[in-house]
Amino acid sequence: MKTYLVMVGRTSDPWLNTGISDYFKRISRYIPFQDIVIPDIKKAKNLSENLLKEKEGEVILKNILPGDVLVILDEKGREFTSRQFAQWMEKQMASGIKNLWFVIGGAYGFSPEVYKRADFKISLSQMTFSHQMVRLFFAEQLYRSLTILNNEPYHHD
């Protein structure tokens, strides 16, 4: 199974980029992994929130194939403990799916089309974080889940 993390827009803070890159390298030691950054939509400031989400959604969905699993990180999604998320990942890996897509949306969330296509919604917290911070938090949790599944000492209960 190949795992993708799709992110809308660039991360502008160098310290965040450093942390995110570090976790991406760690993740790649365990599973086939690719990060995809969707460039900011041109002239986004001239678009309504709904039109911006629609344009971002079109780019998000263009690579998702039938049979791929699409997981969106959304404030209304299911919350997991780290161990629960590791168990969820293990089920996905054992299910025989070819591609697992995680998507972190832009500042305004997702279009109705992305919500409709999503197989799962996951929330990292009831708190609100910037979509740039979510990249680091999710990368760390994905890495943590893989260390849990490999019985490595990174995670402590």
Rank of each mutant, 00 (worst) to 15 (best):
F120G: 00
S130A: 08
I72S: 11
I64E: 04
M93H: 12
L100Y: 04
S82F: 06
I31A: 03
K91F: 13
G105R: 07
S12P: 01
E75W: 03
R26M: 11
M127E: 08
V114A: 02
D68S: 13
I27S: 08
Y115R: 08
Q126H: 06
L52K: 03
M93F: 15
N17E: 10
I122W: 07
I20T: 03
F102C: 07
I41R: 07
K76I: 00
E56M: 02
F110V: 14
P14A: 11
D119K: 01
L136H: 05
V103L: 08
K53E: 10
V103Q: 05
M89D: 00
I104W: 01
K43N: 14
S111H: 06
L47C: 10
F24Y: 11
P14C: 08
K42C: 11
S82W: 02
R117C: 06
D119P: 03
W88C: 15
W101F: 15
I64K: 05
K91Q: 15
R26S: 02
S12N: 13
Y108F: 15
G77Y: 06
N50Y: 13
G105L: 02
K62F: 12
P39K: 12
I36Y: 05
L124M: 12
I36R: 09
D22Y: 05
N46I: 00
N99P: 07
L124D: 05
Y4D: 08
F102V: 12
M93K: 15
K121D: 09
F85L: 13
M133T: 06
E140G: 04
I97Q: 01
V59P: 03
Y30A: 11
R26H: 00
M127P: 08
L65C: 14
V71F: 01
L100C: 03
Q84S: 13
L51V: 00
I31H: 01
S21M: 02
V59H: 10
R83C: 01
D74R: 02
V8Y: 02
